[in-house]
């Protein structure tokens, strides 16, 4: 095995890790504030992929504009397909629409499925979340498609070329990989700044430490929770769109495995801790990729979970989590 192979697998891992980190943040934000596992988060990731595909099809798939009554799309598509500025605008539109739509979906879910349960026993929101998850999957299955949809135009052309961007010393790095790694790092940095520097961010941190006390200090708890339920799914949606572009398809049950992995990543980093989720995401991605590359592709998930168990046995609070004292 050559050195370039190791680097290549590591880059695969960092890309995967970026996706995990984006999704893991959604779990960790919600857990930090509400102490609940938002089981439906993986489905929001999936929805992100679908909404993104829809936007791309409307803005840049000639087959859609050719349909009867859709002719007005032609000039719009001409702009978005013109490359350069058009391409950047297409990407911004896709990610923005997907993030906003799914973000609001997250807020709606919180409002109707979780808020009534805020004082219920701890398992009740978990079951509710599983219910939401089953509902969303089947809604997509019934109303969109039960098939695995290709993430490309109807004529098979990709929206973003996924070919090699550059090669250094035999290591090929694809456009998508650069795109994913850079975007996820930027988003993570933005979120980190938002939470640590702004007033709203402070309110979020306060709520996560002690919701009741924060409420007494004048923080609007409902607003903070709603915000967490907007940001998390919005980031998940970005990851969903990337996932579709990078791997090439969307399916109604695609969220499940990345969901479990991202949750694992959040736990490895210390659940409730934002930087922990990012660290855990990248760590898990790299470990998985190297495990698949050097040990066995079949056992990559096993190795990921063994790492999880080891981390928790030796550091029960996760890598960056504080050892929480039992509340008496």
């Amino acid at each position: 095995m050559t050195f370039s192979y190791v680097v290549e697998q590591t880059i695969n891992g960092v890309t995967l890790g970026g996706l995990y980190a984006l999704v893991a943040l959604g779990y960790t934000l919600v857990y930090g504030i509400l102490l609940m596992i938002n089981f439906a988060h993986s489905e929001l990731f999936m929805m992100g992929g679908y909404v993104g595909l829809g936007v791309l099809k409307v803005l840049a798939d000639p087959a859609v504009a050719d349909k009867a009554g859709m002719g007005f799309l032609k000039p719009i598509q001409a702009f978005f397909m013109s490359g350069g500025v058009g391409f950047v605008a297409l990407m911004v539109a896709t990610f923005l629409v997907s993030a906003v739509v799914v973000g609001f979906l997250g807020v709606i879910i919180e409002r109707f499925a979780y808020r009534p349960l805020r004082h219920a026993p701890r398992l009740a929101p978990l079951i509710s979340a599983i219910g939401v998850s089953i509902f969303l999957q089947n809604a997509v299955l019934l109303w969109i498609s039960s098939k695995q949809l290709p993430y490309s135009r109807a004529d098979g052309v990709q929206f973003v070329t996924a070919t090699t961007a550059f090669s250094v010393a035999g290591v090929d790095v694809s456009t998508m990989q650069v795109f994913i790694i850079v975007t996820s790092l930027v988003l993570l940095a933005l979120l980190d700044t938002f939470v640590s520097k702004t007033r709203t961010g402070r309110a979020m941190r306060a709520t996560s430490q002690d919701a009741e006390a924060a409420g007494l200090m004048g923080v609007d708890i409902n607003r903070v929770i709603a915000l967490a339920f907007f940001i998390g799914p919005a980031l998940g949606a970005v990851a969903g769109v990337f996932n579709g572009m990078y791997y090439g398809s969307v399916k109604f049950n695609m969220g499940f495995i990345p969901g479990i992995k991202s949750f694992t990543a959040a736990v490895i980093g210390g659940i409730g801790n934002l930087r922990g989720a990012m660290l855990g995401g990248f760590m898990l991605g790299i470990i998985e990729s190297l495990a698949a590359g050097f040990i066995s592709n079949a056992y990559r998930d096993v190795i990921a979970f063994i790492v999880l168990i080891l981390v928790l046995v030796f550091r029960p609070g996760g890598l960056l989590g504080e050892a929480v004292a039992e509340k008496v």
């Binding site: 891992g13 995967l16 791997y247 399916k251 998985e288 590359g293 066995s296 592709n297 079949a298």
Partner: peptide, 20 residues
């Protein structure tokens, strides 16, 4: 020889392996 899952979509690590 390698194994994958039947619902997998991420083959990047496997692809690097096959390429090598």
């Amino acid at each position: 020889t390698e194994k994958t899952g039947d619902k997998d979509t991420d083959f990047k690590a496997l692809v690097s392996k096959i390429k090598a």
